[in-house]
Amino acid sequence: MSQLYPSYTVVNASDLTKLWVDAMVIGQNLCPFAASERNRGSIRYVIVDAQEVSTAMGGFLNELLFLQQSSEDEASTSLVIFPEGFEDFEIFLNLLDVAEDALIQSGVEGLFQLASFHPDYQFTGLSRDDITNWTNRSPFPVLHIIREGQMGRVLDSYKSPDEIPERNIDLMKKLGVKGLVQCFPPFQDYIKSASKD
């Protein structure tokens, strides 16, 4: 069971993450490119059942290899989900650092890049309760493997891509925590858990 989402078990971590993508990433248009990939069925949701960085990296590298061996039509992007073991944001950041180093060591830097999401995501320099953090808060810790070339082509065809982050921040401020919970009710579990810290 997730400590941050006690109502949801590891068994349905993939389903809950898909719901989050539908409700928040696509539903609130946080990523304008996600809907087309969801509709094509090319987003992969991969559960890595590991609680230590070394074993978690095995699952991450397996998925990275899968993407290397697959076409964009088969698998455009992967959300690698870690339901247990990385609830602590600092431990998750260590995993992210190791994963980014692995991209370099594997010789695929420039082909793939990572984005990260976490239930307790906190941008450097912001307080934990700053609403801006919610642009990157997800039900479970996630490493998002992105095909850099594909993303570059999409951004080239999108008007004012540099405005996307600022627009998302404005949306978070407009929604507020109450509005976020209305969009994605499982966030309520996170808020209750965080208030106990």
Score class of each variant (00 low, 15 high):
residue 188 Q to Y: 08
residue 133 N to K: 09
residue 79 L to R: 02
residue 176 G to K: 08
residue 45 Y to H: 06
residue 138 S to A: 15
residue 49 D to S: 11
residue 17 T to Y: 02
residue 79 L to C: 10
residue 191 I to K: 06
residue 42 S to C: 05
residue 53 V to D: 11
residue 74 E to M: 04
residue 48 V to N: 02
residue 38 R to L: 08
residue 147 R to H: 15
residue 153 R to C: 05
residue 154 V to H: 04
residue 102 A to C: 07
residue 99 A to I: 03
residue 17 T to D: 00
residue 2 S to T: 00
residue 144 H to P: 02
residue 154 V to Q: 13
residue 63 E to R: 04
residue 85 G to R: 03
residue 41 G to M: 08
residue 17 T to V: 07
residue 143 L to D: 04
residue 30 L to I: 06
residue 174 K to C: 02
residue 130 D to T: 04
residue 114 L to F: 15
residue 138 S to P: 03
residue 23 A to H: 09
residue 101 D to H: 12
residue 80 V to A: 06
residue 81 I to S: 00
residue 144 H to G: 01
residue 134 W to M: 10
residue 18 K to S: 08
residue 177 V to H: 07
residue 161 P to C: 10
residue 7 S to T: 13
residue 3 Q to H: 06
residue 158 Y to A: 10
residue 13 A to S: 15
residue 70 S to I: 09
residue 19 L to M: 12
residue 9 T to S: 14
residue 138 S to Y: 06
residue 39 N to R: 12
residue 96 L to F: 00
residue 74 E to I: 01
residue 16 L to C: 03
residue 95 L to D: 05
residue 12 N to E: 15
residue 182 Q to H: 11
residue 119 P to F: 03
residue 120 D to C: 08
residue 143 L to I: 12
residue 12 N to P: 02
residue 3 Q to K: 10
residue 50 A to D: 12
residue 26 I to P: 05
residue 168 N to R: 05
residue 183 C to K: 15
residue 179 G to I: 10
residue 4 L to R: 00
residue 22 D to R: 12
residue 22 D to M: 10
residue 183 C to L: 15
residue 31 C to H: 03
residue 149 G to M: 01
residue 86 F to C: 05
residue 58 G to E: 15
residue 111 L to M: 14
residue 40 R to L: 13
residue 146 I to W: 12
residue 143 L to N: 03
residue 33 F to G: 04
residue 48 V to G: 03
residue 128 R to Y: 04
residue 117 F to T: 08
residue 155 L to E: 05
residue 70 S to V: 06
residue 29 N to M: 11
residue 38 R to S: 04
residue 64 L to E: 10
residue 166 E to Q: 10
residue 88 D to Q: 14
residue 15 D to I: 06
residue 25 V to Q: 05
residue 110 G to D: 07
residue 126 L to Q: 11
residue 95 L to T: 09
residue 134 W to G: 00
residue 128 R to V: 12
residue 160 S to E: 14
residue 75 A to Q: 08
residue 14 S to W: 01
residue 112 F to C: 13
